[in-house]
């Protein structure tokens, strides 16, 4: 079955079973491996993408649900709005092994679209579904707080 959707601003058509996980379609069919699999069951957030601006877990999302909708992945966001965030994550200790980072960047972009200068508590709420085993989350907090600085 062929599914059509808007991926990182471009209209694409994918030939795949409708119940395929979006995560597999991105990684295997489209070569977009920035979206990671950390658990495959909705617990870690490494596979986070935006569906119509809302962060969703692509390991739980059947491809068919993307039909006609807007999907943004880390590859698209890194080229556009995520630049300043990524720069601060890198310089302030928000990136260690990096396996969680794309998911965290995607989830944070969604937060920043809604809330320009989020508080520590708002960040914690928005990233509650994104596990990071390396940083203790402090570097991530520092980076997001630093976005408010000139």
């Amino acid at each position: 079955m062929s599914i059509e959707f808007l991926l990182n601003g471009e209209r694409i058509e994918v030939e795949a079973p409708p119940m395929s996980r979006l995560l597999d379609v991105l990684r295997r069919e489209l070569g977009l491996t920035g979206t990671k699999e950390g658990c495959g069951e909705g617990e870690c957030g490494a596979c986070t993408v935006l569906l119509e601006d809302v962060p969703v877990l692509s390991c739980l999302l059947p491809l068919v649900q993307c039909e006609g909708r807007r999907v943004d992945t880390i590859e698209g966001l890194a080229r556009s709005e995520a630049g300043p965030l990524i720069e601060r994550l890198v310089s302030l200790g928000g990136v260690q092994c990096g396996a969680c980072t794309p998911g965290i960047v995607v989830a944070t972009c969604a937060l920043l679209r809604q809330t320009e200068n989020p508080t520590r508590a708002q960040v914690a709420q928005a990233l509650a579904g994104n596990l990071c085993r390396c940083t203790g989350y402090e570097g991530i907090h520092r980076a997001i707080q630093a976005l408010a600085e000139p």
């Binding site: 990684r27 699999e37 990524i86 310089s91 980072t101």
Partner: peptide
């Protein structure tokens, strides 16, 4: 504390981990 050189590639999803390249 210069920025780690692999940082951007990690955060932007372009760094290839073990399961990334087929």
């Amino acid at each position: 504390s210069p920025a780690r050189p692999d940082g951007f590639a990690k955060a932007s999803g372009s760094l290839a981990y073990a399961d990334d390249a087929r």
